[in-house]
């Protein structure tokens, strides 16, 4: 291995002498590469759109808008923020719903209970799977994994009432003491 350093010194001296025009040293970020690939391969239903509020130089933070075309939330418009860390895909993206929504699996702070975002995340999953997972929450809200306890209880015991509540919330009204912004 001494040889290894020997040549290195030689090269360093050469580099000093000639005005080297070699590669600028660049760190390679494998996480970012994988994310860019995920993004170009997105295959989203028409009801989901992606946007990049920080422009093309920051793809690690983006927004996904979901407009369900069926189910309780039909015609609503819900915006999610995605934060992808440099450890991606070893770690799941951090996802929040920034539209306040009356939903059994999304709390009023925008936390989302979706298994693949936490306990079931695997590096083979990708952004597309996450968006489909979110989409699925609107077509099939599920009272068994509640984050909004009240909404889950209503969905379980009285689906008709739940539907009314969802409509009222999306129209910009109150459900119980909580007001919701209009998102329809």
């Amino acid at each position: 291995m001494i040889g290894l350093f020997k040549v290195k010194e030689k090269q360093r001296e050469e580099a000093k002498n000639t005005n080297s025009r070699g590669a600028s040293v660049k760190k390679q970020s494998a996480g970012e590469l994988r994310l860019h690939k995920d993004i170009t391969e997105l295959n989203l239903p028409e009801s989901c759109t992606i946007s990049f509020p920080n422009g093309k130089n920051d793809l690690m933070n983006f927004e996904v808008t979901i407009k369900p075309d069926e189910g309780y939330y039909k015609n609503g418009k819900f915006v999610f923020t995605f934060q992808v860390s440099s450890v991606y895909p070893h770690e799941a993206p951090k996802v929040k719903c920034i539209t306040k929504v009356y939903h059994p699996n999304i709390d009023l702070e925008g936390n989302v209970c979706l298994n693949i975002l936490r306990e079931d995340w695997k590096p083979v999953l990708n952004i597309n799977t996450v968006i489909y997972g979110l989409f699925h929450l609107f077509t099939e809200p599920n009272y068994e994994d509640p984050l909004n306890h009240d909404a889950a209880a209503v969905l379980k015991t009285n689906p008709k009432q739940f539907e009314t509540n969802v409509r009222r919330a999306m129209g910009g009204g109150y459900v119980g003491n909580t007001s919701f912004p209009r998102c329809i």
């Binding site: 760190k27 993004i39 170009t40 992606i50 946007s51 990049f52 093309k56 793809l59």
Partner: peptide
């Protein structure tokens, strides 16, 4: 093909919003 050079993406084929920017 989409092309990335270090931190800069030079071209992205999709989604349309990014294609347009590049």
């Amino acid at each position: 093909a989409s092309v990335k050079h270090g931190k800069d993406s030079l071209y992205m084929q999709a989604p349309p919003v990014l294609e347009e920017m590049h």
